[in-house]
């Protein structure tokens, strides 16, 4: 057999990678919208907190943040349960992975969304307010559809980075596709060493397939959101 009986493991790992990146994307997307809202709110304290968040997170490597957050929270939780004489609670790595990735890439999304909100012509929002739309209606019907067009290249970029960053969470013990490849290597080590090269190449190809697929999705989305935009002719 081609995968020496490890095909199932690799398939499960691939699914876990997809789930992990999609859920992290969702989480980061929401944080990004909230962060952009805070930065543009005009409230000094809110924008200070948001600026601090994006500056600190984007200045520190994601792997360092991942290890820092994951192990610190587990450490604090252990101390808390010890103090209360409770049983030790282990943080679920999958849940922790989503939280950490979402929290880190939320900072990048905040910057993306801030830029794209500023790119929407002010007159559009003023006109909507004059028509008597509520703040939520303005966001949903006027601001969001228009800002998405400016945000899409940034979102596509961030998504690719998140997808590739999921490879790192194998380090904190998640069974995604890289970990599956490593398990397969350990399992087949007695049958010839070249398996390490083979399984790692397979993992690389799976990532290449996923990034190519998402490229296509984003190209369709870009077409959808730029309906009615006339491109300058060069």
């Amino acid at each position: 057999m081609l995968f020496e009986g490890y095909g199932r493991l690799l398939w499960d790992g691939t699914l876990e990678t997809i789930q992990l990146s999609l859920l992290s994307l969702l989480f980061a997307f929401v944080i990004g919208l909230l962060g952009a809202a805070a930065k543009l709110s005009g409230n000094r304290w809110l924008s200070l907190v948001a600026t601090l968040y994006t500056t600190l997170i984007r200045g520190v490597p994601d792997l360092v943040l991942m290890l820092l957050l994951y192990y610190s929270f587990q450490d604090w939780l252990n101390r808390l349960t010890d103090a209360l004489n409770l049983q030790q609670i282990d943080i679920d790595p999958f849940f922790a992975g989503i939280c950490v990735l979402g929290f880190i890439y939320g900072a990048y999304f905040t910057e993306t969304f801030r830029g794209s909100v500023l790119a929407v012509p002010k007159g559009q929002l003023e006109a909507a307010a004059v028509y008597g739309l509520s703040r939520w209606q303005i966001f949903r019907r006027i601001l969001f559809p228009q800002m998405m067009r400016f945000a899409l290249p940034g979102i596509s970029n961030n998504w690719q980075v998140i997808l590739k960053a999921t490879a790192l969470v194998s380090i904190i013990g998640l069974h995604e596709v890289v970990r599956a490849a490593q398990d397969a290597i350990t399992g087949t080590s007695s049958k010839g060493a070249y398996h390490a090269f083979f399984f790692l190449s397979v993992a690389g190809l799976i990532y290449l397939l996923l990034t190519s697929l998402s490229n296509m999705v984003f190209m369709t989305l870009e077409q959808r959101y730029s309906i009615g935009i006339r491109r300058p002719e060069l």
Binding site: Q160, K164, A165, T166, A167, L168, S170, V178, Q182, F197, L200, S201, A203, G204, Y207, L208, T211, S212
Partner: peptide, 12 residues
């Protein structure tokens, strides 16, 4: 190169 994670490239 841009479609695969650096971690996988390093492991390879």
């Amino acid at each position: 190169i841009r479609g695969t994670p650096l971690y996988v490239q390093l492991l390879l």
